[in-house]
């Protein structure tokens, strides 16, 4: 009976992971395909990778995306941490319900609506006060900060909720000012949550197509926008190569981050003992 059950469960997992990973593996395999016709195997080759390196448009789009992701993740982590602190540590304040709603809503809002609303804001602002003079990297960054700070806030809030408050109370009892206690005690303790928040914000920004398409202007094309305009017409071998590069970088990053957190967790458990 028990054996039968575990065979059944293992089969499910095999099928599940096959479903999740086969498409990704296929892209990787076909990126080394020499043939111009994507699905016909024409021998092993690196030619699409070499072509990528020569494509200035891709490199420029990638650099723009990375710049936007770096800035928006950093600002979103700062704002999201404040928001998480406000929700978890500041008790009641006026407008708390609206605040909670504004943190939760971006998580489930369809991107087309967020993108449209931000564009309307930027256009109206430009009409009223002349800022932002033209749309591009800056407006995309603001859009990304807004939706990813909500994710950071949720991560920080849930970490703070699960935290034992006695350490901070002790620090307060000893006369620590709230500002210093937050800076010296709370933030170091929740540093792993801040790091996950930053990584998530970074990835969300790198990944976003819809909001960027709405709030971008002529000349500012992020990597997803460039990829989208290309694959809308069908599969192309150089996108396979680009996808493989991205998949490799992201997987390595996630595996290393996961391993570091795992090790830190183990270390902490050992310290506790």
């Amino acid at each position: 009976m028990n054996r039968q059950r575990s065979t059944f469960l293992i089969t499910i997992l095999c099928f599940g992971y096959a479903f999740l990973y086969i498409p990704i593996v296929m892209v990787v395999i076909y990126s080394f395909n020499d043939s111009r016709i994507v699905s016909v195997w024409g021998g092993f080759s690196f030619r699409w990778y070499l072509q990528l390196l020569e494509n200035r448009q891709i490199i420029e789009a990638a650099l723009l995306s990375l710049r936007i992701a770096f800035v928006s993740a950093t600002v979103a982590t700062a704002l999201g941490t404040l928001a998480g602190l406000a929700l978890a540590r500041m008790g009641r304040f006026r407008g708390r319900i609206l605040f909670t709603g504004m943190i939760a809503a971006p998580l489930v809002m369809p991107e087309v609506i967020t993108g449209l609303s931000l564009l309307l804001l930027f256009v109206s602002l430009q009409d009223l006060v002349g800022w932002p003079g033209g749309r591009g990297a800056a407006t995309i960054t603001i859009g990304h900060i807004t939706f990813s700070m909500a994710y950071v806030a949720v991560i920080v809030q849930s970490r703070l909720m699960s935290l034992d408050e006695s350490l901070q109370e002790a620090a307060m009892d000893l006369g620590g000012r709230p500002f210093r206690v937050t800076l010296d005690i709370t933030l170091p303790i929740i540093a792993p949550a801040l790091l996950s928040g930053w990584l998530l914000a970074f990835t969300l920004s790198l990944d976003d197509l819809v909001i960027a398409s709405f709030v971008s202007g002529p000349g500012a094309s992020t990597l997803p926008m460039w990829i989208f305009s290309k694959i809308r017409l069908g599969v192309t071998p150089d996108i396979n190569a680009l996808a493989t590069v991205i998949i490799t970088i992201v997987s390595l990053g996630v595996v290393i981050a996961g391993w570091l957190m795992f090790r830190q967790e183990k270390q902490r458990q050992r310290d506790v003992q």
Binding site: V27, T203, D207, L209, A243, I247
Partner: peptide, 10 residues
């Protein structure tokens, strides 16, 4: 974590 766009593209 891997790009949504690329997973759809796959």
């Amino acid at each position: 974590w891997i790009s949504f766009l690329l997973r759809v593209y796959a």
